[in-house]
Design a protein around this nucleic acid. Structure first.
Lengths: 207, 207
DNA sequence: TTTTATTATTAAACATGTTTAACTACAAAA
DNA sequence: TTTTGTAGTTAAACATGTTTAATAATAAAA
């Protein structure tokens, strides 16, 4: 690696570390690009050159921690005899607990990234796709074990459970009065409904 | 009403009309507060005095149309013998179709309002609450008719169906390649799962 | 009617994300 | 080694949402 390339990487790291520090201490809306540049000992223009925009910087600065949290959630997953419901709740517990450390920060991150036009947020899009794959596979496995109906579409189910997960997360990040337990309780109730349905058996048969 | 009050209202209307026009023609991110002020024949500062912020102006400028669309969806609701599923899909058809007229505009609106901290977006919060009430009541009615299980929590169900509705809407507004039919098809599949469940009957009984 | 207070309005300034154009140091070519 | 080109960096400028302080018009009080 040439000298130029190494110093470029160093600069990038300086900016990233400064950004992580200030995003956490001052909050993402309170700290300016100038603040970050000064903390990194670099010009504001340089921050833009390395990371295109403040939102992109936020995404890059934080996605590794999120990825690590997901990996940890998967690694500590309850054993095979645990139900789909329990596994979903385990993941939710890990993720909501993580976001709870700095709700304001992750509210801004998720607002600015999930509503970006498609294709603008590669990291988080990939994380979602991984999640859907993972959950879809888990549901297929349940089908094989006979606990999930063979006719149920695994990808639809994975996406639905993600919808429920995501909407509760949104409310959790938006509303400081909502405790972690409340969020988990709400998700548990909605997920349970999705797994078991709400129609009476007669109605279901007629479909 | 005093002279001052009337001219104030007139100014407010001028700004609102200018904002509606420019938001639709130029797009919410392309048109500036200065553009709107000039179109209204008023100073930029005046726009802020009347509507606190650009996002707040966007919300006020658009919520009436949304409210009208909801009212229309409710008014044209299929009759009593229609299923819960059909009624949900009717509403979704009306709403997605409306948003489809200017996806970019409503993407920005929903991004900037739904991720605001709780309490910052009174109009849309109220609309959501109305929606949950309305749907909750519909589900209670189904319970009375014996098509929905008595044990099912109507508010949880209404919120869950809204989650599914909302997440599909997000993807619809974000992704220009997604057609209206695709969005409706996706929602229909997820909503169907929520109504009927995915677990095998044996599993459900054990719960 | 004159004086005082209020309030809608705005010009100018400010804050901050981003762009532009110039500079400098390194690498490649001659 | 000298020259030429490339690429990382930045100072300055720009764009735009918002705030501030001043103005002028109206209402209220004397």
């Amino acid at each position: 690696m040439s000298r130029r390339e190494t110093t470029k990487l160093e600069t990038r790291q300086l900016i990233l570390e400064a950004a992580r520090k200030l995003f956490h201490t001052k909050g993402p809306e309170q700290c300016t690009m100038r603040d970050i540049a000064k903390e990194a000992g670099v010009s504001p223009a340089s921050v833009v050159v390395h990371f295109k925009s403040k939102t992109a910087l936020l995404e890059v600065a934080l996605y590794e921690d999120i990825e690590r949290t997901i990996a940890n959630a998967v690694a500590t997953m309850p054993h095979e005899n645990a139900s789909l419901h329990d596994r979903l709740m385990h993941i939710a517990h890990c993720m909501y607990g993580f976001y709870d450390n700095d709700r304001e920060l992750y509210r801004v991150l998720i607002r600015d990234t999930t509503f970006e036009k498609a294709g603008e947020n590669p990291y988080l899009t990939q994380q979602l796709e991984d999640y859907l794959q993972f959950f879809g596979a888990m549901i297929e496995q349940e089908k094989a074990q006979g606990t999930v109906q063979p006719a149920a579409d695994a990808r639809i189910a994975a996406a639905s459970l993600f919808s429920l997960y995501f909407t509760v997360l949104m409310e959790f990040l938006r509303n400081p009065n909502m405790t972690l337990d409340m969020a988990l309780g709400w998700l548990a109730a909605t997920a349970h409904q999705h797994l078991t349905g709400i129609l009476t058996p007669k109605e279901v048969k007629e479909k």
